[in-house]
Design a protein around this nucleic acid. Structure first.
Lengths: 225, 225
DNA sequence: ATAATAGTGTCTATGAGACAGTATAGC
DNA sequence: GCTATACTGTCTCATAGACACTATTAT
Protein backbone atom coordinates (compact mmCIF):
# COMPACT_ATOMS: atom_id res chain seq x y z
CA UNK A 1 0.00 0.00 0.00
CA UNK A 2 1.18 3.50 -0.66
CA UNK A 3 -0.09 6.98 -1.28
CA UNK A 4 0.05 6.43 -5.01
CA UNK A 5 -3.67 5.97 -4.81
CA UNK A 6 -3.64 9.73 -4.71
CA UNK A 7 -3.00 9.78 -8.44
CA UNK A 8 -6.49 8.61 -9.02
CA UNK A 9 -9.00 11.40 -8.85
CA UNK A 10 -11.81 9.07 -8.00
CA UNK A 11 -11.77 10.21 -4.38
CA UNK A 12 -14.05 13.03 -3.20
CA UNK A 13 -13.75 14.78 -6.54
CA UNK A 14 -10.81 16.12 -8.44
CA UNK A 15 -9.55 18.75 -6.09
CA UNK A 16 -8.57 17.32 -2.72
CA UNK A 17 -7.84 14.05 -0.99
CA UNK A 18 -7.38 13.21 2.66
CA UNK A 19 -4.62 10.77 3.54
CA UNK A 20 -3.65 9.09 6.77
CA UNK A 21 0.05 8.49 7.42
CA UNK A 22 1.09 6.26 10.29
CA UNK A 23 4.35 6.43 12.20
CA UNK A 24 4.77 2.91 13.54
CA UNK A 25 7.41 3.03 16.24
CA UNK A 26 9.09 0.22 18.07
CA UNK A 27 12.27 -0.33 20.07
CA UNK A 28 14.94 -2.86 19.20
CA UNK A 29 18.37 -3.41 20.71
CA UNK A 30 19.70 0.05 21.22
CA UNK A 31 17.44 2.25 19.16
CA UNK A 32 14.01 3.47 18.23
CA UNK A 33 12.78 2.30 14.86
CA UNK A 34 10.09 3.53 12.52
CA UNK A 35 8.55 1.51 9.69
CA UNK A 36 9.25 2.83 6.19
CA UNK A 37 8.44 1.71 2.66
CA UNK A 38 10.66 2.19 -0.35
CA UNK A 39 8.70 3.75 -3.19
CA UNK A 40 8.66 2.07 -6.61
CA UNK A 41 6.91 4.86 -8.50
CA UNK A 42 7.10 8.56 -9.01
CA UNK A 43 7.01 10.89 -7.32
CA UNK A 44 9.89 10.27 -4.94
CA UNK A 45 10.79 7.01 -6.65
CA UNK A 46 13.48 5.28 -4.60
CA UNK A 47 12.74 7.41 -1.56
CA UNK A 48 11.31 6.03 1.63
CA UNK A 49 7.84 6.94 2.81
CA UNK A 50 5.64 6.31 5.80
CA UNK A 51 2.87 3.74 5.46
CA UNK A 52 -0.30 5.54 4.53
CA UNK A 53 -3.71 5.20 3.00
CA UNK A 54 -6.25 7.40 1.36
CA UNK A 55 -9.21 7.82 3.68
CA UNK A 56 -12.38 6.51 2.12
CA UNK A 57 -15.44 8.74 2.28
CA UNK A 58 -17.25 6.00 4.17
CA UNK A 59 -14.67 5.43 6.86
CA UNK A 60 -13.56 7.43 9.87
CA UNK A 61 -9.96 8.48 10.39
CA UNK A 62 -9.51 5.80 13.03
CA UNK A 63 -10.81 3.14 10.67
CA UNK A 64 -8.31 4.25 8.06
CA UNK A 65 -5.53 3.93 10.62
CA UNK A 66 -6.69 0.44 11.58
CA UNK A 67 -6.87 -0.61 7.93
CA UNK A 68 -3.39 0.70 7.43
CA UNK A 69 -2.01 -1.17 10.44
CA UNK A 70 -3.63 -4.43 9.37
CA UNK A 71 -2.16 -4.19 5.90
CA UNK A 72 1.27 -3.13 7.09
CA UNK A 73 2.08 -5.16 10.16
CA UNK A 74 -0.88 -7.49 10.61
CA UNK A 75 -1.85 -6.25 14.09
CA UNK A 76 -4.48 -3.68 14.96
CA UNK A 77 -5.01 -3.78 18.74
CA UNK A 78 -2.16 -1.44 19.50
CA UNK A 79 -1.76 2.02 20.92
CA UNK A 80 -2.40 4.84 18.47
CA UNK A 81 -2.73 8.57 18.88
CA UNK A 82 -3.31 11.38 16.43
CA UNK A 83 -0.16 13.41 15.87
CA UNK A 84 -0.80 16.35 13.56
CA UNK A 85 -2.56 17.34 10.37
CA UNK A 86 -0.37 18.54 7.53
CA UNK A 87 -1.99 20.94 5.16
CA UNK A 88 0.64 22.69 3.05
CA UNK A 89 -0.48 23.35 -0.50
CA UNK A 90 2.29 21.54 -2.36
CA UNK A 91 3.19 18.79 0.05
CA UNK A 92 2.23 16.36 -2.70
CA UNK A 93 3.53 17.54 -6.09
CA UNK A 94 0.59 16.06 -7.98
CA UNK A 95 -2.49 17.38 -6.26
CA UNK A 96 -3.77 18.73 -2.98
CA UNK A 97 -3.55 16.11 -0.27
CA UNK A 98 -4.26 16.79 3.37
CA UNK A 99 -2.54 14.29 5.64
CA UNK A 100 -3.62 13.35 9.13
CA UNK A 101 -0.67 11.65 10.82
CA UNK A 102 -0.89 9.10 13.62
CA UNK A 103 1.66 7.58 15.94
CA UNK A 104 1.39 3.84 16.58
CA UNK A 105 3.46 2.03 19.21
CA UNK A 106 4.05 -1.70 19.01
CA UNK A 107 6.23 -4.47 20.29
CA UNK A 108 8.43 -5.53 17.43
CA UNK A 109 7.97 -9.26 17.95
CA UNK A 110 4.28 -8.95 17.15
CA UNK A 111 4.90 -7.37 13.76
CA UNK A 112 5.27 -9.08 10.42
CA UNK A 113 5.66 -6.29 7.90
CA UNK A 114 4.81 -7.07 4.29
CA UNK A 115 5.39 -4.83 1.29
CA UNK A 116 2.21 -3.59 -0.34
CA UNK A 117 1.57 -2.60 -3.92
CA UNK A 118 4.11 -0.37 -5.61
CA UNK A 119 6.49 -0.91 -2.71
CA UNK A 120 9.73 -2.76 -3.22
CA UNK A 121 10.84 -2.97 0.36
CA UNK A 122 9.61 -2.48 3.89
CA UNK A 123 12.18 -1.73 6.55
CA UNK A 124 12.54 -0.72 10.15
CA UNK A 125 14.59 2.45 10.12
CA UNK A 126 16.60 3.46 13.15
CA UNK A 127 15.73 7.00 14.17
CA UNK A 128 16.85 9.43 16.83
CA UNK A 129 16.84 13.15 17.28
CA UNK A 130 20.49 12.96 16.23
CA UNK A 131 20.03 11.29 12.84
CA UNK A 132 16.61 12.60 11.85
CA UNK A 133 17.99 15.58 9.94
CA UNK A 134 20.25 13.35 7.93
CA UNK A 135 17.35 10.99 7.30
CA UNK A 136 15.19 13.79 5.97
CA UNK A 137 16.85 13.72 2.57
CA UNK A 138 15.87 10.11 2.02
CA UNK A 139 12.22 10.56 2.86
CA UNK A 140 9.40 11.38 0.48
CA UNK A 141 6.98 14.28 0.82
CA UNK A 142 7.13 16.01 4.24
CA UNK A 143 7.57 12.69 5.99
CA UNK A 144 10.87 13.83 7.46
CA UNK A 145 9.03 16.60 9.27
CA UNK A 146 6.54 14.06 10.53
CA UNK A 147 9.24 11.78 11.93
CA UNK A 148 11.00 14.68 13.65
CA UNK A 149 7.75 15.95 15.13
CA UNK A 150 6.74 12.49 16.32
CA UNK A 151 10.08 11.94 18.05
CA UNK A 152 9.64 15.18 19.97
CA UNK A 153 6.17 14.12 21.03
CA UNK A 154 7.39 10.70 22.19
CA UNK A 155 10.28 12.24 24.09
CA UNK A 156 7.97 14.64 25.82
CA UNK A 157 5.38 12.06 26.76
CA UNK A 158 7.66 9.29 27.98
CA UNK A 159 8.38 10.98 31.28
CA UNK A 160 4.84 11.72 32.39
CA UNK A 161 2.73 9.03 30.70
CA UNK A 162 2.81 5.26 30.29
CA UNK A 163 3.40 5.14 26.55
CA UNK A 164 6.67 3.22 26.86
CA UNK A 165 4.78 0.13 28.02
CA UNK A 166 3.13 -0.12 24.62
CA UNK A 167 6.49 -0.95 23.10
CA UNK A 168 7.17 -3.77 25.58
CA UNK A 169 6.04 -7.37 25.38
CA UNK A 170 3.56 -8.85 27.84
CA UNK A 171 6.37 -9.58 30.29
CA UNK A 172 9.63 -7.68 30.58
CA UNK A 173 12.52 -7.06 32.93
CA UNK A 174 12.97 -3.66 34.53
CA UNK A 175 16.36 -3.38 32.87
CA UNK A 176 14.74 -3.76 29.45
CA UNK A 177 12.11 -1.19 30.35
CA UNK A 178 14.76 1.22 31.55
CA UNK A 179 16.62 0.69 28.30
CA UNK A 180 13.54 1.80 26.32
CA UNK A 181 13.25 4.93 28.43
CA UNK A 182 16.92 5.71 27.92
CA UNK A 183 16.63 5.32 24.15
CA UNK A 184 13.54 7.49 23.92
CA UNK A 185 14.97 10.17 26.19
CA UNK A 186 18.43 9.99 24.69
CA UNK A 187 20.20 9.86 28.04
CA UNK A 188 21.20 7.40 30.74
CA UNK A 189 19.17 6.97 33.90
CA UNK A 190 20.15 5.81 37.37
CA UNK A 191 18.85 2.32 38.02
CA UNK A 192 17.71 2.87 41.60
CA UNK A 193 15.89 6.09 40.77
CA UNK A 194 14.22 4.61 37.72
CA UNK A 195 12.89 1.67 39.69
CA UNK A 196 11.48 3.90 42.39
CA UNK A 197 9.72 5.99 39.80
CA UNK A 198 8.06 3.19 37.82
CA UNK A 199 7.34 0.93 40.80
CA UNK A 200 3.71 2.05 40.98
CA UNK A 201 3.08 1.09 37.34
CA UNK A 202 4.36 -2.49 37.33
CA UNK A 203 3.80 -5.76 39.15
CA UNK A 204 5.84 -8.95 39.31
CA UNK A 205 4.64 -11.86 37.18
CA UNK A 206 6.53 -14.38 39.29
CA UNK A 207 8.70 -15.38 36.34
CA UNK A 208 12.45 -15.01 36.08
CA UNK A 209 14.94 -14.79 33.26
CA UNK A 210 17.52 -17.51 33.93
CA UNK A 211 20.54 -18.82 32.04
CA UNK A 212 22.56 -15.63 31.85
CA UNK A 213 25.91 -15.50 33.62
CA UNK A 214 24.64 -13.19 36.33
CA UNK A 215 21.84 -12.78 38.81
CA UNK A 216 18.46 -13.68 37.26
CA UNK A 217 16.02 -10.86 36.46
CA UNK A 218 12.49 -10.79 37.74
CA UNK A 219 9.79 -10.42 35.11
CA UNK A 220 7.16 -7.71 35.40
CA UNK A 221 4.01 -6.68 33.66
CA UNK A 222 2.35 -3.30 33.28
CA UNK A 223 -0.47 -2.88 35.79
CA UNK A 224 -2.33 -0.61 33.38
CA UNK A 225 -2.01 2.63 35.33
CA UNK B 1 -19.31 33.36 8.50
CA UNK B 2 -20.44 29.87 9.35
CA UNK B 3 -20.07 26.32 8.25
CA UNK B 4 -23.23 26.57 6.19
CA UNK B 5 -20.97 26.91 3.22
CA UNK B 6 -20.75 23.17 3.60
CA UNK B 7 -24.16 22.86 2.02
CA UNK B 8 -22.69 23.85 -1.28
CA UNK B 9 -21.00 20.94 -3.00
CA UNK B 10 -18.78 23.21 -5.03
CA UNK B 11 -15.82 22.36 -2.84
CA UNK B 12 -13.46 19.55 -3.83
CA UNK B 13 -16.27 17.56 -5.35
CA UNK B 14 -19.44 16.20 -3.92
CA UNK B 15 -18.15 13.82 -1.34
CA UNK B 16 -16.03 15.54 1.27
CA UNK B 17 -15.16 18.95 2.61
CA UNK B 18 -12.47 20.10 5.01
CA UNK B 19 -13.42 22.69 7.58
CA UNK B 20 -11.38 24.65 10.09
CA UNK B 21 -12.98 25.44 13.45
CA UNK B 22 -11.30 27.92 15.76
CA UNK B 23 -11.61 28.02 19.54
CA UNK B 24 -10.88 31.65 20.38
CA UNK B 25 -10.17 31.84 24.10
CA UNK B 26 -9.73 34.83 26.31
CA UNK B 27 -9.92 35.66 30.00
CA UNK B 28 -12.25 38.22 31.53
CA UNK B 29 -12.98 39.02 35.15
CA UNK B 30 -13.20 35.67 36.80
CA UNK B 31 -13.52 33.23 33.95
CA UNK B 32 -12.28 31.80 30.67
CA UNK B 33 -14.39 32.66 27.67
CA UNK B 34 -14.73 31.18 24.21
CA UNK B 35 -16.25 32.90 21.20
CA UNK B 36 -19.47 31.37 19.89
CA UNK B 37 -21.95 32.19 17.14
CA UNK B 38 -25.66 31.57 17.28
CA UNK B 39 -26.81 29.74 14.17
CA UNK B 40 -29.65 31.15 12.07
CA UNK B 41 -30.05 28.18 9.75
CA UNK B 42 -30.48 24.45 9.90
CA UNK B 43 -28.95 22.20 10.95
CA UNK B 44 -28.67 23.13 14.61
CA UNK B 45 -30.69 26.29 14.15
CA UNK B 46 -30.63 28.29 17.39
CA UNK B 47 -27.64 26.37 18.69
CA UNK B 48 -24.25 27.92 19.23
CA UNK B 49 -21.28 26.96 17.11
CA UNK B 50 -17.60 27.73 16.96
CA UNK B 51 -16.38 30.15 14.30
CA UNK B 52 -15.28 28.17 11.30
CA UNK B 53 -14.59 28.24 7.61
CA UNK B 54 -14.39 25.84 4.75
CA UNK B 55 -10.81 25.46 3.67
CA UNK B 56 -10.32 26.52 0.10
CA UNK B 57 -8.37 24.21 -2.18
CA UNK B 58 -5.88 27.00 -2.79
CA UNK B 59 -5.19 27.87 0.80
CA UNK B 60 -3.29 26.15 3.58
CA UNK B 61 -4.85 25.28 6.92
CA UNK B 62 -3.05 28.17 8.59
CA UNK B 63 -4.33 30.59 5.96
CA UNK B 64 -7.86 29.40 6.63
CA UNK B 65 -7.36 30.02 10.33
CA UNK B 66 -6.05 33.52 9.66
CA UNK B 67 -8.98 34.28 7.37
CA UNK B 68 -11.32 33.08 10.05
CA UNK B 69 -9.72 35.22 12.75
CA UNK B 70 -9.81 38.32 10.58
CA UNK B 71 -13.48 37.89 9.84
CA UNK B 72 -14.44 37.07 13.41
CA UNK B 73 -12.44 39.34 15.67
CA UNK B 74 -10.47 41.57 13.32
CA UNK B 75 -7.02 40.55 14.59
CA UNK B 76 -4.69 37.97 13.12
CA UNK B 77 -1.30 38.34 14.82
CA UNK B 78 -2.21 36.16 17.76
CA UNK B 79 -1.14 32.83 19.15
CA UNK B 80 -2.67 29.80 17.44
CA UNK B 81 -2.01 26.10 17.67
CA UNK B 82 -3.56 23.10 16.01
CA UNK B 83 -5.75 21.16 18.42
CA UNK B 84 -7.18 18.03 16.82
CA UNK B 85 -8.74 16.75 13.63
CA UNK B 86 -12.27 15.42 13.92
CA UNK B 87 -13.21 12.79 11.41
CA UNK B 88 -16.37 10.98 12.51
CA UNK B 89 -18.62 10.04 9.62
CA UNK B 90 -21.79 11.80 10.70
CA UNK B 91 -20.45 14.76 12.63
CA UNK B 92 -22.23 16.94 10.08
CA UNK B 93 -25.70 15.59 9.30
CA UNK B 94 -25.62 16.79 5.70
CA UNK B 95 -22.40 15.47 4.25
CA UNK B 96 -18.95 14.32 5.16
CA UNK B 97 -16.95 17.13 6.72
CA UNK B 98 -13.53 16.71 8.24
CA UNK B 99 -12.76 19.42 10.75
CA UNK B 100 -9.30 20.58 11.78
CA UNK B 101 -9.67 22.51 15.02
CA UNK B 102 -7.35 25.25 16.23
CA UNK B 103 -6.94 27.04 19.54
CA UNK B 104 -6.41 30.82 19.41
CA UNK B 105 -5.52 32.90 22.46
CA UNK B 106 -6.15 36.61 22.56
CA UNK B 107 -6.46 39.56 24.88
CA UNK B 108 -10.11 40.50 24.99
CA UNK B 109 -9.55 44.24 24.65
CA UNK B 110 -8.09 43.74 21.18
CA UNK B 111 -11.17 41.92 19.87
CA UNK B 112 -14.19 43.41 18.17
CA UNK B 113 -16.37 40.45 17.25
CA UNK B 114 -18.87 40.93 14.45
CA UNK B 115 -21.58 38.50 13.39
CA UNK B 116 -21.04 37.01 9.95
CA UNK B 117 -23.58 35.74 7.45
CA UNK B 118 -26.34 33.49 8.72
CA UNK B 119 -25.35 34.33 12.29
CA UNK B 120 -27.70 36.26 14.54
CA UNK B 121 -25.38 36.75 17.45
CA UNK B 122 -21.76 36.48 18.49
CA UNK B 123 -21.00 36.06 22.15
CA UNK B 124 -18.23 35.34 24.57
CA UNK B 125 -19.32 32.25 26.47
CA UNK B 126 -17.93 31.54 29.91
CA UNK B 127 -16.46 28.05 30.03
CA UNK B 128 -14.83 25.88 32.65
CA UNK B 129 -14.32 22.21 33.18
CA UNK B 130 -17.25 22.46 35.57
CA UNK B 131 -19.83 23.86 33.13
CA UNK B 132 -18.66 22.33 29.87
CA UNK B 133 -20.89 19.29 30.12
CA UNK B 134 -23.92 21.45 30.68
CA UNK B 135 -22.87 23.64 27.77
CA UNK B 136 -22.62 20.66 25.44
CA UNK B 137 -26.37 20.53 24.87
CA UNK B 138 -26.40 24.05 23.48
CA UNK B 139 -23.58 23.53 21.00
CA UNK B 140 -23.90 22.44 17.39
CA UNK B 141 -22.13 19.47 15.82
CA UNK B 142 -19.35 18.00 18.00
CA UNK B 143 -18.29 21.45 19.12
CA UNK B 144 -18.93 20.55 22.75
CA UNK B 145 -16.28 17.85 22.46
CA UNK B 146 -13.92 20.38 20.95
CA UNK B 147 -14.40 22.86 23.78
CA UNK B 148 -13.88 20.18 26.42
CA UNK B 149 -10.78 18.88 24.69
CA UNK B 150 -9.36 22.39 24.29
CA UNK B 151 -9.87 23.20 27.98
CA UNK B 152 -7.92 20.09 28.93
CA UNK B 153 -5.12 21.10 26.60
CA UNK B 154 -4.98 24.61 28.03
CA UNK B 155 -5.02 23.35 31.58
CA UNK B 156 -2.18 20.97 30.85
CA UNK B 157 -0.04 23.53 29.06
CA UNK B 158 -0.46 26.47 31.43
CA UNK B 159 1.89 25.04 34.00
CA UNK B 160 4.85 24.26 31.79
CA UNK B 161 4.58 26.74 28.91
CA UNK B 162 4.07 30.47 28.46
CA UNK B 163 0.64 30.34 26.81
CA UNK B 164 -1.03 32.40 29.54
CA UNK B 165 0.89 35.49 28.42
CA UNK B 166 -0.97 35.43 25.12
CA UNK B 167 -4.17 36.28 26.96
CA UNK B 168 -2.63 39.28 28.72
CA UNK B 169 -2.27 42.82 27.43
CA UNK B 170 1.10 44.39 26.69
CA UNK B 171 1.48 45.40 30.35
CA UNK B 172 -0.06 43.67 33.31
CA UNK B 173 0.25 43.30 37.06
CA UNK B 174 1.43 40.03 38.57
CA UNK B 175 -1.85 39.76 40.44
CA UNK B 176 -3.75 39.85 37.15
CA UNK B 177 -1.42 37.25 35.67
CA UNK B 178 -1.87 35.03 38.70
CA UNK B 179 -5.60 35.40 38.32
CA UNK B 180 -5.44 34.04 34.78
CA UNK B 181 -3.43 31.06 35.96
CA UNK B 182 -5.91 30.39 38.73
CA UNK B 183 -8.84 30.52 36.34
CA UNK B 184 -7.21 28.19 33.82
CA UNK B 185 -6.06 25.76 36.48
CA UNK B 186 -9.28 25.97 38.46
CA UNK B 187 -7.53 26.40 41.80
CA UNK B 188 -5.98 29.07 43.98
CA UNK B 189 -2.25 29.63 44.08
CA UNK B 190 0.01 31.07 46.75
CA UNK B 191 1.19 34.52 45.78
CA UNK B 192 4.78 34.18 46.93
CA UNK B 193 5.23 30.83 45.20
CA UNK B 194 3.63 32.03 42.00
CA UNK B 195 5.92 35.03 41.80
CA UNK B 196 9.01 32.95 42.34
CA UNK B 197 7.94 30.63 39.56
CA UNK B 198 7.17 33.23 36.89
CA UNK B 199 9.96 35.66 37.84
CA UNK B 200 12.19 34.43 35.03
CA UNK B 201 9.54 35.12 32.39
CA UNK B 202 8.68 38.72 33.19
CA UNK B 203 10.37 42.09 33.53
CA UNK B 204 9.24 45.37 35.06
CA UNK B 205 8.09 48.09 32.70
CA UNK B 206 8.65 50.80 35.27
CA UNK B 207 4.96 51.69 35.32
CA UNK B 208 2.63 51.42 38.27
CA UNK B 209 -1.11 51.12 38.76
CA UNK B 210 -2.13 53.95 41.07
CA UNK B 211 -5.44 55.22 42.44
CA UNK B 212 -6.62 52.07 44.19
CA UNK B 213 -7.02 52.19 47.95
CA UNK B 214 -4.00 50.04 48.60
CA UNK B 215 -0.34 49.75 47.70
CA UNK B 216 0.24 50.39 43.95
CA UNK B 217 1.04 47.42 41.70
CA UNK B 218 4.10 47.32 39.51
CA UNK B 219 3.48 46.70 35.83
CA UNK B 220 5.31 43.91 34.03
CA UNK B 221 5.71 42.66 30.51
CA UNK B 222 6.45 39.18 29.19
CA UNK B 223 10.13 38.84 28.31
CA UNK B 224 9.31 36.32 25.56
CA UNK B 225 10.83 33.24 27.18
C1' DA C 1 37.24 -16.44 42.92
C1' DT C 2 35.77 -13.47 38.98
C1' DA C 3 32.80 -11.15 35.93
C1' DA C 4 28.55 -9.49 34.98
C1' DT C 5 24.18 -7.83 35.79
C1' DA C 6 20.14 -7.54 39.32
C1' DG C 7 18.51 -5.07 42.86
C1' DT C 8 18.49 -1.78 47.33
C1' DG C 9 19.60 1.92 51.01
C1' DT C 10 20.54 6.54 51.82
C1' DC C 11 22.49 11.19 51.50
C1' DT C 12 21.80 15.61 49.19
C1' DA C 13 20.10 19.27 46.38
C1' DT C 14 16.17 21.23 44.42
C1' DG C 15 11.77 22.93 44.27
C1' DA C 16 6.74 23.13 45.42
C1' DG C 17 3.69 24.23 49.08
C1' DA C 18 2.35 26.64 53.21
C1' DC C 19 2.34 30.51 56.00
C1' DA C 20 3.89 34.51 58.36
C1' DG C 21 5.48 38.72 57.89
C1' DT C 22 6.36 43.70 55.98
C1' DA C 23 5.09 47.70 52.61
C1' DT C 24 2.24 51.34 50.76
C1' DA C 25 -1.70 53.23 48.96
C1' DG C 26 -6.79 55.58 50.03
C1' DC C 27 -9.88 56.82 53.47
C1' DG D 1 -5.66 54.88 62.93
C1' DC D 2 -8.07 51.06 59.53
C1' DT D 3 -8.54 48.35 55.38
C1' DA D 4 -7.10 46.44 51.34
C1' DT D 5 -3.91 44.70 48.33
C1' DA D 6 1.23 44.45 46.97
C1' DC D 7 5.15 42.14 47.88
C1' DT D 8 8.90 39.17 50.46
C1' DG D 9 11.36 35.80 53.71
C1' DT D 10 11.65 31.33 55.30
C1' DC D 11 10.32 26.78 57.02
C1' DT D 12 8.84 22.13 55.69
C1' DC D 13 8.16 18.25 53.00
C1' DA D 14 8.22 15.55 48.83
C1' DT D 15 10.94 14.14 45.17
C1' DA D 16 14.77 13.74 41.65
C1' DG D 17 19.59 12.91 41.34
C1' DA D 18 23.87 10.79 42.68
C1' DC D 19 26.33 7.09 44.46
C1' DA D 20 27.61 3.29 47.24
C1' DC D 21 26.40 -0.97 48.59
C1' DT D 22 24.62 -5.99 48.57
C1' DA D 23 22.75 -10.26 45.86
C1' DT D 24 22.88 -14.08 42.67
C1' DT D 25 23.95 -16.37 38.70
C1' DA D 26 27.59 -18.83 35.09
C1' DT D 27 32.18 -19.92 34.37
Amino acid sequence: MSTDELLKPKYYGEKLSVAVDVLIFTVADNHVEVLLEKRDDEPFRGYYALPGAIMDVDESLEETVTRCLREEIGVTDIYTEQLYTWGELRRDPRRRVLSVSYIALVNKTRCHPVPGERVSEVRWQEVSTANVNELRGKLAYDHGDMVAYALERLKGKVEYTSIAFHMMGEEFTLSALQHVYEILLGKNLYKANFRKKIAEFVEETGGMVVGDPHRPSKLYRWNGK
